[in-house]
């Protein structure tokens, strides 16, 4: 939540060059980007939709095999 207040000191609030440079780091950004895009995929057993799909596929194949016997 933000709240406006009156600055009676009449001093301009500007960041210094040192303050800015403390946070300027492209290698950190690249690292975070790599982590973001190369996030490991969900394992099969944790994906309920895919799990159900594989289960049904297996069941159909099993029934087909059972019928052909």
């Amino acid at each position: 939540m933000r709240k406006f207040t009156l600055n009676k000191e009449a001093k301009k609030k500007e960041p210094t060059k040192e303050q800015i440079n403390r946070y300027k780091d492209f290698s950190r950004l690249s690292h975070e980007y790599e982590r973001l895009v190369k996030r490991p995929k969900k394992p099969l057993y944790k994906d309920p939709k895919l799990f159900l799909y594989l289960f049904l596929l297996g069941l159909i194949l099993y029934l087909m095999y059972f019928e052909s016997k």
């Binding site: 939540m1 709240k3 600055n7 009449a10």
Partner: peptide, 18 residues
Amino acid sequence: FFRSTKNEISIEIEDRQI
């Protein structure tokens, strides 16, 4: 950030801006 933070963020306005 404004929505997520619980603390009040004070934005100071200068006299000439007013």
